[in-house]
Design a protein around this nucleic acid. Structure first.
Lengths: 198, 198
DNA sequence: ACATCTCTCTACCATATGGTAGAGAGATGT
DNA sequence: ACATCTCTCTACCATATGGTAGAGAGATGT
């Protein structure tokens, strides 16, 4: 209880920002959710932008940890490894839509905030690109521009993970069982797209 | 000039909402952009929500027209036809990011507004699903749940098309030539994912 | 005992924003 | 000539919101 106020603010803000949108959530709303006064938020974070940035940096950090763990635990085969990473990213994203829901908003946030987030993501992306290039050279992943292939995988996974509501809206995803089937289909889809041409 | 005020408002609002975000753009901003007083906006649209809804409905309508045209002009082969549709959707999305930029915001808008947009999109989705099912039965598209495959294609294309800024942020897309290469890679990616297993 | 640091509170404010009230200019129908 | 309709304007307001001012309670170091 004592000393964890900052962490509780971050957690609450992550969920609220991710689900309702950064602009739609006021400091008062977050404060009420955490159970403190608004000024307490402004003691811990200089401004709302500062809070948004902290949320994004933390989220990126958690994503990185999850991905690292998935990579270490996976087999050497690149398609299996990619599947493991996608599963790892998809799991928290489905349980807690806010995590990836934030990502869809980044490009519309204050430039410095967005930049700070991208700083955090860049090393991850760089590693993925290098990895893809190596495996393409080995012929274990379908040839192509590794940067663009990485971008496509990223777009597909975040597209699916960040917009469950949008997909629900047009009648695609009535429940979580359906969501699991979507994940399965996504993995087959990516595998087919990445398997080297015989 | 006379009588086109409503259309000019819609066009300006589409761009501003799509690029900066619905919440970040005030009625005053739009009015200044169009060159009229704010009240003029409120003469043509009951409220900001009403304007947002009109923008979304128009956007969905334009997408539908573009897609219909692409389908009619394409060959009978399903992979070619899908490629034609993706090209058709991608083109205006790249030239005018606002068009698809809006889509990423739908799930966070007022429920009635989002619902109205989904109403517009549903028939398109339904057609796509029916089409995929038929071609899967014929063995001309890789087997799978047609609804989920449609969802994946949708997620991939919108993911790529709506987040050029995000992709740019992590160092992927410095210019339009790169964007064209991304489109080419996207088409190969989708083709590989949808080609029936031999 | 005192000073300092950590943390949270109440009270308040300036500004932005969606929306209202109501007038009026010009075109069109009868 | 008059009424009505279309369209746009100025002036104004209520509210939400990010942020400031400044106090004070409790813990910790010397």
């Amino acid at each position: 209880m004592a000393g964890d106020t900052r962490a509780r603010i971050l957690e609450s803000a992550t969920d609220l920002f991710g689900i309702r949108g950064v602009d739609a959530v006021s400091l008062d709303t977050i404060a009420a959710d955490v159970g403190v006064a608004k000024q307490t938020l402004l003691y811990w974070f200089e401004s709302k932008d500062d809070l948004v940035q902290a949320v994004l940096v933390q989220t990126a950090g958690q994503l990185a940890v999850v991905i690292e763990a998935a990579i270490r635990a996976s087999s050497d085969d690149p398609l299996d490894r990619i599947e493991a990473v996608v599963r790892a990213v998809f799991r928290p994203a489905v349980r807690r839509p806010s995590l990836l829901g934030l990502i869809g908003q980044v490009s519309r946030l204050a430039p410095e905030v967005a930049e700070r987030f991208h700083d955090e993501l860049r090393p991850l992306v760089h590693r993925a690109v290098v990895y893809l290039r190596v495996e393409m050279d080995r012929g274990r992943v379908r040839a192509g521009d590794p940067r663009l292939i990485a971008a496509l995988c990223y777009a597909t996974v975040t597209g699916v993970a960040t917009e469950p509501e949008a997909l629900r809206g047009v009648g695609w995803l009535p429940n979580t069982a359906e969501l699991r089937r979507l994940r399965t289909e996504l993995l087959a889809f990516l595998r087919a797209a990445l398997t080297p041409a015989s």
